[in-house]
Design a binder for these strands. Structure first.
Lengths: 112, 112
DNA sequence: CCGTATCCACCTTGATACTG
DNA sequence: CAGTATCAAGGTGGATACGG
């Protein structure tokens, strides 16, 4: 098995509270700031901005400004961003099939 | 596309700073508390305890106490824990192949 | 519309000391 | 050996107000 330290670094991206949710929202094409804000329930304007900036910095997505009135900024996955999204697909699958088990396990544990 | 809310819940596990590292360490069989502590560089005794408790509660691993002197507690993945570990494998793969790209993207971004 | 700036409450976490 | 208890520091993130 490979170097655990690499896993550490990736957790910095994947472990982020919002990052994977944003990546997922963009899987079908670019979205604008406000569209993302509406789509991701509970995210604050600040955290959306910060997280988008981080993902742009990491080369996961691109930020494109159209200078019209009103301003128009769209975010789109890069090639690398799309591969990340594919790599997280099994995990999403897993979550959907196992969350009931987890909830059950928690209930059983807490029952004692 | 499935319910994003489920992804949210899983991030509670996966997004944890230490959880996935522990799951990975256990992939080849049970380990004891001290062995885990040694293996996972930088984790404090407190966080190891807390994270193990959470994972046990979620049904990801089991905690087994052997009442000998000195005390002997071993942790082992459950069946569900092993499937989680398999689901995260592609993500680990991705991290290993793409971390150089990410570092490069960051350097380029910061250069401006 | 798409941010940035500031403030602050909260949570997480490490350090340290102590126990069966 | 394998924890628990306590505390304090730092980071995280929400609310709010403002700017291009």
């Amino acid at each position: 098995m490979q170097d655990p330290c690499q896993a550490r670094e990736v957790l910095g991206i994947v472990g982020d509270k919002w990052a994977l949710l944003i990546v997922r929202m963009l899987k079908d094409g670019p979205l604008r700031f406000t569209e993302l804000k509406r789509a991701i329930d509970g995210i604050s304007q600040r955290m959306l901005t910060v997280t988008l900036r981080d993902l742009e910095r990491d080369g996961i997505l691109t930020r494109t400004v159209r200078n019209v009135m009103p301003p128009h900024v769209s975010y789109e996955l890069t090639t690398m961003g799309r591969t990340l999204r594919e790599a997280t697909a099994p995990l999403l699958e897993w979550s959907i099939t196992h969350l009931p088990h987890i909830d059950a396990a928690r209930a059983a544990y807490d029952h004692r």
